[in-house]
């Protein structure tokens, strides 16, 4: 089973890296850029009985390690 986890900063959490990237994009002439928030992507391969079991397991992984839920949200996508 393959899955992708996307970790993003919660709204309202300061993202200086995103701001620096935004500044660079605007500086390179992409003047339409209004906001950039950066995050992380994890591609996982795991053994699981079915998609639901995989998602349940990955949710636990996110809560335990992959995301810091004080400042981050996560999304799980089961690729199959």
């Amino acid at each position: 089973m393959k899955a992708r986890v996307i970790v993003t900063l919660k709204n309202g959490v300061l993202d200086p890296q995103g701001q620096a990237i935004e500044g660079s994009l605007v500086g390179q002439g992409f003047e339409g850029v209004q906001s950039v928030r950066q995050g992380k992507v994890f591609d996982l391969e795991l053994e699981a009985a079915d998609a639901l079991a995989a998602e349940t397991e990955i949710r636990r992984m996110c809560e335990k390690l992959l995301a810091n839920t004080v400042i981050e949200n996560f999304d799980i996508e089961i690729i199959g």
Partner: peptide, 10 residues
């Protein structure tokens, strides 16, 4: 409680 994030100055 809380978390330590990247310095605001980067």
């Amino acid at each position: 409680p809380g978390v330590l994030m990247r310095n605001a100055s980067l």
